[in-house]
Design a protein around this nucleic acid. Structure first.
Length: 386
RNA sequence: GCUGGAAUCGUCUAGUGGCAAUGACAAGAGACUGUAAAUCUCUCGGCUUCGGCCUUCGUAGGUUCGAGUCCUACUUCCAGCA
């Protein structure tokens, strides 16, 4: 069981308002607060692709999520520790998350998975690596993000048997993650006469795929180790997500924050997630799509490279107050993409990231105002044209 | 003026007797959800009842069952010599 802890500001998570499963709250971290629900920017290699941290700050982002696997490969966790931790290294002086590397086991070819952990070769150097629950914890401590994810195991198929196997292993690994996290914490405070405010929080990750009984079992197990918060993993589409989240979030300790891992490319994911009790989201979709020319608008996504935008001198979204929409036209963005200019990806990323960040900000405001259902209905009707 | 060489789908290009014809770029469209993604996929002469049909490799003839490929003339361009 994880050692109970409080942040300097009090508990890690304070809830301001509830509405059904949905809630508005604040996550308190050593690098500041996150007002939730919130969209967390995906900064896999310690950078949000195409964007500076100043741009991320300006577009309203509250937190970013980096990836342990990628940072182990380059530049190495020791270097980030030497730099003074992730937030100092990349000059993002606000809350940070790290993902454990668990997802890479699932998404990369040629990894060897055993009960102990995962063996793989660096695609950069060819060097052999082994990532274990303990190793992931140590790496995340070295990286020094505020919120760490437990090292989990995603199933290779959708079958019940594979899902159960992956979930059971995730649970066994979770116990090892908690033990190692506690060991690192005890090491940190050793010799101190006064209790220190915690530096790092650990989220347990719920698995179980689309099977509600497995999800319920996983949620109960995650509660049992008393983590600081929860990640909900292994989710790939909005189909069935409502029932799954209602099951999981009906069980997870309601006083702890919940992060929906990897979801948020489709705006509906954010509405369904927040409505059903998720507090934070991360997703590579907005920035990846931006680099490839697909941009969000309130009327649905568009491909700015399409010929029909060549002479369109209107802003991408007149209602948007991002740097891109306030200053540039669709025709200009179209030109930048066709000319393969770096600025195309920068401006597009600013817009898409701002779009999802501000959409979740509006969800928070709507929950506070008791207008969530109206906002959701109006938004989705306009965005998906139905 | 003479002697060589060259002309192929928007551009560059492959192609030396069986070809609607190679590759790249450009163009048109699509995909992307805890990022090995600045990536990937499809279309790209016209028509089509999807079996084909028609028109194409500077122009005009010719040889051949069959010509982008061989021959002749012309046109244009390039190089060298005058």
């Amino acid at each position: 069981m994880l050692t109970p802890k409080k942040s300097a500001a009090g508990t890690i998570f304070t809830i301001k308002k509830r509405s059904g499963l949905a809630r508005v709250g604040t996550i308190h971290t050593p690098h500041g607060d996150i007002k939730t629900p919130a969209f967390v920017g995906a900064a896999t290699k310690a950078t949000v692709k195409a964007l500076t941290m100043q741009e991320m700050n300006d577009l309203g982002s509250q937190a970013i999520l980096a990836n342990t696997y990628h940072l182990i490969l380059a530049p190495g966790t020791a270097l980030i520790k030497e730099a003074g931790g992730l937030a100092t290294f990349n000059s993002w002086h606000k809350p940070t998350f790290t993902d454990s590397g668990g997802f890479q086991i699932f998404s990369l070819p040629d990894v060897k998975i055993t009960e102990n952990g995962v063996k793989f070769r660096s695609y950069l150097s060819g060097d052999k690596f082994e990532l274990t629950p303990e190793g992931s914890m140590q790496a995340q401590w070295a990286i020094g993000a505020d919120i760490h994810m437990a090292f989990d195991h995603l199933a290779k198929s959708e079958s019940y048997e594979d899902m159960r196997r992956a979930m059971d292993r995730t649970h066994r690994w979770l116990e090892r993650c908690v033990a190692e996290h506690n060991r690192l914490e005890h090491e940190r405070v050793a010799g101190r006469t006064r209790a220190l405010a915690p530096e790092h929080y650990l989220y347990a990750v719920v698995q179980g795929g689309t099977f509600l009984d497995l999800r319920a079992e996983s949620a109960r197990f995650c509660n049992s180790v008393n983590p600081d918060g929860f990640g909900i993993g292994g989710v790939f589409t909005a189909d069935g997500m409502t029932e799954m989240l209602q099951t999981v979030n009906g069980i997870l300790d309601e006083n702890k924050p919940r992060h929906l891992l990897g979801m948020g490319q489709e705006p509906i994911d954010l509405f369904v997630g927040a409505e059903n009790g998720c507090d934070t989201f991360d997703c590579v979709g907005p920035t990846r799509m931006a680099r490839n020319g697909t941009l969000y608008t309130n009327d649905g996504r568009i491909n700015i490279k399409n010929a029909k935008y060549k002479h369109d001198f209107s802003p991408l979204m007149s209602e948007c107050d991002c740097e891109c929409c306030k200053n540039y036209t669709k025709a200009y963005l179209h030109h930048l993409f066709k000319a393969d200019e770096i600025t195309a990806k920068v401006l597009a990323s600013i817009h898409n990231e701002h779009f999802v960040v501000s959409t979740v900000d509006k969800i928070r405001a709507a929950i506070l105002d008791d207008t969530f259902t109206d906002y959701k209905t109006a938004f989705l009707k306009r965005y998906y044209h139905n």
